[in-house]
Write a protein that binds this DNA or RNA. Sequence first.
DNA 1: TCCCATCCCTTGTATTCCAAGGGATCATAT
DNA 2: ATATGATCCCTTGGAATACAAGGGATGGGA
Lengths: 114, 114
Amino acid sequence: MGKDALTLIKGTLDVLILKSLHWGPLHGYAVSRWIRQVSGEVLDVQEGVLYPALHRLERQGLVQAEWGMSDTNRKVKHYELTEAGSERLGDQEQDWARYSDAMDKVLGATQQPS
Amino acid sequence: MGKDALTLIKGTLDVLILKSLHWGPLHGYAVSRWIRQVSGEVLDVQEGVLYPALHRLERQGLVQAEWGMSDTNRKVKHYELTEAGSERLGDQEQDWARYSDAMDKVLGATQQPS
DNA sequence: TCCCATCCCTTGTATTCCAAGGGATCATAT
DNA sequence: ATATGATCCCTTGGAATACAAGGGATGGGA
């Protein structure tokens, strides 16, 4: 019961990706792996979800990509947070905090409907 | 800054509605109003979102609807949680808790990517 | 040599929220 | 009386975005 990864909730992916990039440039696979590990295997960003999202963020000017080499001498594409992306990250973290609070208020409510 | 209602995150609406109905039968408008009030005006379920959602839940057998009268002598449709709906509410509350925890772990992470 | 982990990606499909409407009833204020 | 705002029910069309299910290439270890 409750061991598998949960379905991603639409709209929460961007902030996860942006957060992962605030450590510095990363390639896609590393983004996915980091989110999965840090979330305790609860959030699993499939590659078919990840790459379109990265391209979307790139089109929006929130990240910029550049081909390079990994430590293991593989050709990889590094994604890096832009200034705008950094600001967006802050906004979205705040939005998440508000949203999460609101959800908890509703789910933990003791006030009956009038 | 941050005074307005947030856009609903797709996938979080059902549990909000189910929760509102766990108090007993309610009509749609009251569901919407209760969520808005208890969330501190942060979550605003527009009617164009609410009613399709209620019908969806009804099709899934999680709620059942019945026409009746309100306190104010108006014709209203009362939505009531079914047994299955009550179980689903429990599941989704648990899912939300796990999801929310995972998000907080990622957003509050101190562990750098490897 | 074979396989697994690593890396990049695309194309449907389904879901579901938002915007923007329409329509009816009732209490209250003008 | 009549206008206004809150209460109540609903639908349609469009947009966004996650999922499923693929394809392809590389490198290291068994």
